[in-house]
Design a protein around this nucleic acid. Structure first.
Lengths: 307, 307
DNA sequence: TGTAATTACGGGATACGTAAAGATG
DNA sequence: CATCTTTACGTATCCCGTAATTACA
């Protein structure tokens, strides 16, 4: 028996919660959907859906099968896209995870072009800075700022993010400005816990690298949180230039230690390591790498090559 | 159109190199095979096989599609095995990679029982100690001795391998026996380059851990090579107890430094990290973990629990 | 010239759509 | 009772197996 059609149908049924809706979507009759699901259940020897006129909920088996079916259908799609007429024409849905601020400023505005280029492809966007849960959440591709060290992930560096040491005028009036990285030890430093280097800040001085163990009473795992904390004068922070330059221009925060550049962070594409990288992942990765290349098509690339 | 049957057919055709053979295998007629391949090629818009009466070779597209198809079929099989009648009944082929000596002594003798328990499952065994090429070679599951540090791999520790410091009588006559780990610095030490700790050997002494930087003029990436080098008197080596105890019993090699146990190595199951671990991998992993558990069913488990 | 893949043809199973029946909140 | 799923039935399509044909070494 043919399994693919029932599997496709089942996936859509789970996602829409309705036989009728799937029938319309597939421009077929509703009994066809009913029969396909029934046949699938018979084949598997398991009930996948609990039907009632009003509600349609997957059973435990149904949920498990849904996950497997999605994977399998994606693999079949990859096979179809690997050769022949459809070669190089990715299709399906790409789950993309990007940092909140960077994503809003630099990624989302570019996605329209990507979607136009690959008409059979859809994007499901997740915003977040966490490294760990990519596989868990079924993310296909992520953009991450900072060193990637997770098991099971491949990182492809596409650029470098310059950072600035900043503080709000209100804080500086109260506490004065540090004149060297070492002076930070007696300042309130805002730690970004997502970075492996959490409580140690690294700078490039004229005479080589400088490391400072910082102290402070506010730490957060949210880059938005760091920025907000700086703005309200909670302390000094290192923030990517692209995320804070607006505030600097408006005078809401001041750049400190101009002679000591915080060590730039790598900007990486991250994806689960597989033997065969899906076409859609490769397509998006190549697109992003080109967009953010120092001499790429983006007018104002947020990254700088050296580093 | 149904894609699964043609894909299954195509995979077997590539593997057997014959339409007729596949027809026999599937107890169907040869034209059916021919038609399925033709339909598949039409669907994909690509020629997959170059046919001649005598030879049947896949085109470049064919080879690419073969790889993808295998993956896809495996994913579909996993979906079928996830629920219902066939739940927990893994099927297909499991590619297993094990260290040469450990595998021969402890794994291969146990595989019969495993195969009997899962009748729909086949095993393809690769012997080797390398860590890096698991994904490349399409290995589903590997057993490895030593610390696993590769990206993209999940390690599940199932035991501990005790090691012995050993040397041949001929070597000891020539160079004497070391009376402490420190004395190894003036001995010819045989390094096993696969271990991350290559040129530094760690022992558990009465007064805590001892590390010795060893020197020597022979190193190898083969555990068989280490054993052979010891036997012919090339020097001192650390060797897993299970791999050398036979030689010790026969007097061909002597155990040294009995008061200082070389730090035991972890025995781990290693597999590529995926969101959904295939059933067959889970089955084998559980089987091996139980077999090698300290109180497991194996009569003489080669591992010891404590670390 | 023999072996193996392709094309031709008739039969049968499968799957579909329409229509009616059943279930449920 | 309205809506959605299941069952019934007639039809069209697809696929298979046998047989004949073609291609290649």
């Amino acid at each position: 028996m043919d399994l693919l059609a029932p599997m496709r149908t089942f996936v859509r049924v789970v996602e829409t919660g309705s036989f009728t809706a799937v029938a319309r979507e597939a421009s077929t009759s509703q009994p066809t959907i009913s029969r396909q699901i029934a046949a699938l259940e018979a084949h598997l020897g398991a009930r996948l859906l609990t039907r009632s006129t009003r509600a349609l909920t997957p059973t435990q088996d149904g949920r498990a099968f849904y996950e497997h079916a999605r994977r399998a259908l994606e693999a079949v799609g990859e096979a179809e896209n690997a050769v022949g007429r459809r070669r190089g024409r990715p299709s399906g849905t790409l789950k993309l995870s990007i940092p909140v601020v960077f994503g809003r400023l630099h990624v989302v505005p570019r996605l329209g072009r990507f979607l136009a280029r690959y008409p059979e492809l859809s994007i499901e966007l997740a915003m977040g800075d966490g490294f760990a849960d990519l596989v868990e959440q079924g993310i296909d591709l992520a953009i991450r700022v900072g060193v990637v060290q997770d098991q099971g992930l491949v990182a492809r560096r596409i650029g470098t993010v310059r950072r600035l040491a900043v503080a709000a005028p209100s804080y500086l009036r109260r506490r004065g400005a540090p004149d060297s990285p070492a002076a930070l030890a007696s300042h309130d430093c805002i730690a970004y816990t997502r970075l492996a280097t959490g409580n140690r800040w690294h700078f490039q001085g004229r005479d080589g690298p400088i490391a400072v163990d910082i102290t402070g009473r506010f730490a957060t795992d949210s880059s938005e949180g760091v920025r907000e904390a700086v703005r309200v004068g909670l302390g000094v922070a290192l923030i990517p230039a692209f995320a804070i330059s607006d505030e600097v221009r408006r005078g809401r925060v001041r750049v400190l230690l101009r002679d000591y550049e915080p060590t730039p962070l790598p900007l990486s594409l991250v994806y689960p390591s597989r033997r065969l990288v899906p076409l859609k992942v490769r397509a998006m990765a190549d697109f992003l790498a080109r967009e953010f290349a120092p001499d790429g098509p983006g007018k104002a690339p947020p990254t700088e090559s050296g580093g």
